[in-house]
Simulated assay, not measured.
Amino acid sequence: MSMEAGRDPRSDETREKLLAAGLELFGHHGYDGVTTRMLARAAGVNQSAIPYHFGGKEGVYRAVAEHIAGEMAPIV
């Protein structure tokens, strides 16, 4: 299995799962209504993946907002 520039594809997959879970959960429950446990469970990953990839819940939230902004940029 080839890893581009030393990156682990499983790590990228975990990050994407957390981002997708964040989109769903923050959209339905807002920032205060979501816990890291909920994020991890929805993404199907270990809770420790959240601080590893994003630094914490706020980092996931920020990544979700950046993702949405990036999706909207071509429209504006």
Score class of each variant (00 low, 15 high):
M1P: 08
M1Y: 13
M1S: 14
S2W: 03
M3P: 02
M3D: 14
M3L: 14
M3C: 05
E4I: 14
R7V: 09
R7Y: 03
R7I: 10
R7C: 02
D8N: 15
D8R: 08
P9G: 06
P9H: 13
P9V: 04
P9M: 12
R10A: 12
R10G: 01
R10E: 10
S11V: 12
S11G: 07
D12L: 10
D12H: 05
D12A: 12
D12I: 08
D12N: 10
D12K: 01
T14K: 11
T14D: 02
T14N: 08
R15D: 02
E16S: 11
E16M: 11
E16Y: 08
K17Q: 15
L18K: 04
L18P: 07
L18T: 06
L19G: 06
L19E: 00
L19V: 11
L19S: 01
L19D: 00
L19Y: 03
A21S: 02
G22N: 00
G22M: 06
G22F: 04
L23N: 08
L23S: 05
L25Y: 04
L25H: 01
L25A: 12
F26W: 03
F26E: 00
F26C: 07
F26Q: 09
G27M: 12
G27C: 11
G27D: 10
H29F: 14
G30Y: 01
G30A: 11
Y31P: 09
Y31N: 13
Y31E: 12
D32V: 02
D32Y: 00
D32A: 14
G33K: 05
G33C: 10
G33M: 02
G33S: 04
G33N: 07
G33L: 04
G33F: 00
V34R: 10
V34E: 00
T35P: 04
T35M: 01
T35I: 07
T36P: 09
T36W: 12
R37T: 14
M38R: 12
L39V: 06
L39H: 04
A40D: 14
A40H: 09
R41V: 15
R41P: 08
R41S: 09
A43K: 10
A43D: 00
G44D: 05
G44N: 06
V45D: 09
N46P: 02
N46Q: 13
N46L: 10
N46F: 03
N46W: 04
Q47V: 05
Q47I: 05
S48E: 04
S48Y: 06
S48V: 04
S48R: 00
A49I: 06
A49K: 14
A49W: 09
P51D: 10
P51A: 03
Y52D: 04
Y52F: 14
Y52G: 02
H53F: 09
F54N: 02
F54M: 09
F54S: 07
G55A: 09
G55N: 13
K57Y: 00
K57V: 02
E58N: 04
E58S: 12
E58Q: 12
G59K: 02
G59F: 00
V60C: 04
Y61P: 01
R62V: 08
A63R: 14
A65P: 01
A65M: 11
A65R: 08
A65W: 07
E66P: 11
I68W: 05
A69I: 10
A69N: 15
A69C: 13
G70Q: 03
M72K: 15
M72P: 07
P74G: 15
P74E: 15
I75K: 07
V76K: 11
